[in-house]
């Protein structure tokens, strides 16, 4: 366990430095990259962006400083846990991120919950009925759902639940019911693949020698699966869900935009358009750290679920 935690802590440090550096380099190498103009457009809008506004921004933010100097300042600030201020709004990046991150975590947690609640029962059902009508039906459904961009899936759900049935609001964030449709969209998209992983693990477990032996020694089907099957199904599923978080981040950007959800994905896309480097570095850093944290949790869960990993 200690080994896992040390390894992940080291990874987090390395990740923080590499994400920040890569973001810095990539942003500087984007085409049409004149930051002062971009930031002026972000601050004052299309009608007011002009050469004069860009010059004022450049002087105020000292953008004429060399890239190395700016990078050095940012890195020094990072060591003191100071992420700086947004170049567009002027607000501390930490404040902006904490606001956005809260919303994104709620959405991501709800989406994962939906995915788990759908993927595990459906995957198990498919696994037990492998090759049958149910298995094929769920496969076709999963392919259809996964083949849709999350944006289309979200619109379909809005048409069904908000416009057709009138059960849920289209977009917004004030009340708990606002999270249902974005979470369902993301959750369905995640579950479409996750249920296939559960299904394959189930088939593998059901055909394994140890599972056959558990049944031969007289355990009832329910007891045999509970004692010897479920854990073995969950280990690859958990590991897979951890990897899928990358896809979740990609989906969050689109979904937050579609459902007017003020999360970190929305903030990230605006930071890219406006070349708001501190915001972008801060957002990428937080997302990277979250990714390491989630994978650490996945490692710990697998460590707890699979006794073989505890062997020296």
């Amino acid at each position: 366990m200690k080994h896992i935690l040390w390894r992940r802590a080291w990874q987090a440090l390395l990740m923080a430095w590499s994400v920040a550096t890569l973001t810095f380099i990539l942003l500087r190498s984007l085409p049409g990259n004149d930051m002062a103009y971009r930031i002026a457009a972000g601050r004052y809008g299309d009608d007011a962006v002009s050469a004069a506004a860009a010059q004022a921004v450049s002087q105020e933010l000292q953008l004429q400083q060399s890239a190395w100097l700016q990078y050095g300042h940012w890195l020094a600030d990072l060591l003191t846990l100071n992420l700086g201020n947004s170049l567009v709004t002027g607000a501390p990046v930490v404040d902006e991120l904490s606001h956005q991150l809260g919303y994104t975590l709620v959405l991501a947690a709800a989406a994962i919950l939906v995915a788990v609640l759908l993927a595990i029962p459906l995957g198990l059902w498919s696994g037990f009925k492998a090759g049958g009508t149910v298995d094929n039906g769920i496969l076709v459904g999963s392919v259809l759902v996964r083949a849709q961009p999350v944006f289309t899936l979200g619109l379909l759900l809005i048409f069904m639940f908000a416009l057709g049935l009138g059960w849920l609001p289209v977009a917004g964030f004030r009340e708990p019911q606002y999270v249902v449709l974005p979470a369902l969209t993301l959750g369905l998209s995640l579950a479409a693949i996750a249920n296939r992983v559960v299904r394959n693990s189930t088939v593998q477990v059901l055909n394994s020698a140890y599972y056959e032996f558990a049944q031969l020694k007289g355990l009832s089907p329910t007891r045999a699966f509970w004692r010897h099957g479920l854990r073995n199904v969950l280990v690859p599923t958990l590991a897979f869900m951890g990897i899928q978080l990358i896809g979740l981040v990609e989906g969050v950007i689109m979904i937050e935009s579609l459902f007017a959800w003020p999360g970190i994905g929305h903030g990230l896309s605006h930071a890219v358009f406006a070349r708001d480097i501190p915001m972008l570095q801060g957002t990428a850093l937080v997302m990277g750290l979250l990714f390491v944290l989630v994978n650490t949790l996945v490692d710990i869960s697998c460590y707890w679920l699979d006794p073989r990993s505890r062997e020296p």
Binding site: G32, D34, A41, D46, A54
Partner: peptide, 9 residues
């Protein structure tokens, strides 16, 4: 298609 700021630039 550019950012609006590309035009004054």
């Amino acid at each position: 298609m550019e950012n609006a700021s590309a035009i004054p630039m």
